[in-house]
Amino acid sequence: MQGVVKVNSALNMRSGPGSNYGVIGTLRNNDKVEIIKEVDGWYEIRFNGKVGSASKSYITIVN
């Protein structure tokens, strides 16, 4: 499943599904990500070869 980031500035990509996990990357508006699965309001995603988590509130699913 594919998604597109929708933010005003930037979205942190984290090492796990929650804001208490470390930041491993930064996503910008309109970045395209691969959604692997949903976990507690977060998506596990793949972006630029990295796997991490980002809040699903800022990612829109595209077909």
Rank of each mutant, 00 (worst) to 15 (best):
V62F: 09
L27A: 02
G16L: 02
V33L: 05
V23Y: 05
V4H: 05
G41E: 09
I24V: 11
Y21S: 04
G22C: 14
V39L: 10
Y21I: 02
Q2K: 11
G22I: 12
V33I: 07
S9I: 12
T60K: 13
I45Y: 00
L11E: 07
A10S: 13
I61C: 08
A54I: 13
Y58D: 10
Y21F: 12
T60S: 12
E38M: 07
Y43I: 03
F47E: 01
K32F: 12
N30G: 15
D40W: 07
G3M: 03
R28D: 06
N29C: 10
G49Q: 06
L11K: 09
V33M: 04
W42D: 01
V51T: 11
N8W: 12
Y21A: 04
N20S: 12
N8P: 11
I24H: 01
S57I: 14
R14I: 07
I24C: 07
D31W: 05
P17A: 06
I36H: 03
F47L: 05
V7H: 10
K56Q: 06
V51I: 13
S55C: 15
N12C: 15
K32S: 09
V7A: 11
G18W: 01
M1N: 08
A10F: 15
I59Q: 00
K6S: 10
P17R: 03
Y58P: 02
S55H: 14
G52S: 02
I36W: 04
M13C: 12
Q2Y: 15
I45Q: 00
V62R: 05
G49R: 04
N29Q: 07
G25I: 08
Q2D: 08
G16S: 03
N20G: 11
E44H: 08
G18R: 00
I35N: 00
D40V: 06
V23C: 08
S57W: 13
S9Y: 13
K6T: 11
M13P: 02
E38P: 01
L11G: 06
N8I: 12
V33Q: 00
V33R: 00
M1C: 15
S53Q: 06
G16Y: 02
G22D: 15
Y58T: 06
G3E: 02
N63P: 12
V51N: 07
M1I: 13
R46D: 06
A54S: 05
Q2A: 10
S9A: 11
G52F: 03
S55L: 15
G41F: 05
L11S: 05
D31N: 05
D31C: 08
M13I: 15
M1R: 12
I24M: 05
Y58Q: 08
R28Y: 13
S57Y: 14
W42N: 01
L27V: 04
V7C: 15
P17G: 04
I45R: 00
M13T: 02
E34A: 07
N30H: 09
T26F: 11
L27K: 00
G3T: 02
I45M: 03
V4R: 08
Y21K: 03
R14D: 05
K37R: 14
I59N: 00
T60D: 11
L11F: 06
V23Q: 04
I45N: 00
Q2W: 15
Q2N: 10
E38W: 07
R14K: 06
R46M: 12
N8G: 12
K37W: 07
I45K: 00
I45A: 00
V7D: 04
M1H: 10
N12P: 15
S19T: 14
P17M: 05
G22T: 13
G18K: 02
G3Q: 01
V51P: 05
G22A: 15
E34S: 07
K50N: 09
D31A: 08
V5D: 02
N8C: 15
I35Y: 00
R14H: 15
I36D: 02
K32W: 11
V4F: 07
W42H: 02
S53H: 15
V62N: 08
G22S: 14
V5M: 03
V4T: 07
V23T: 07
E34K: 06
Q2G: 06
T26W: 09
V5S: 01
A54K: 01
I35S: 00
V23S: 06
Q2M: 15
I45L: 08
K32Y: 12
G41A: 06
G41M: 07
S57T: 13
S57P: 07
I61Y: 05
K6V: 12
N30R: 08
N12Y: 15
M1E: 07
E38G: 03
K37P: 01
V5Y: 02
V4E: 05
M1G: 07
R46W: 09
G22Q: 14
S57E: 15
T26Y: 10
E44A: 05
G16M: 00
S57Q: 15
E44Y: 10
I45G: 00
K37I: 08
G25N: 05
G25C: 15
K37T: 10
G25F: 10
G52I: 03
Y43Q: 00
V4M: 09
G41I: 04
V62K: 06
P17C: 10
I35T: 00
V33K: 00
I36L: 14
S15D: 12
N20R: 10
S57K: 15
I36K: 02
V23I: 13
I24F: 01
K50E: 07
Y58C: 14
V5A: 03
R14W: 11
N30K: 08
I61F: 06
K56H: 04
T60Q: 14
N20C: 13
T60H: 14
N30L: 09
R28I: 09
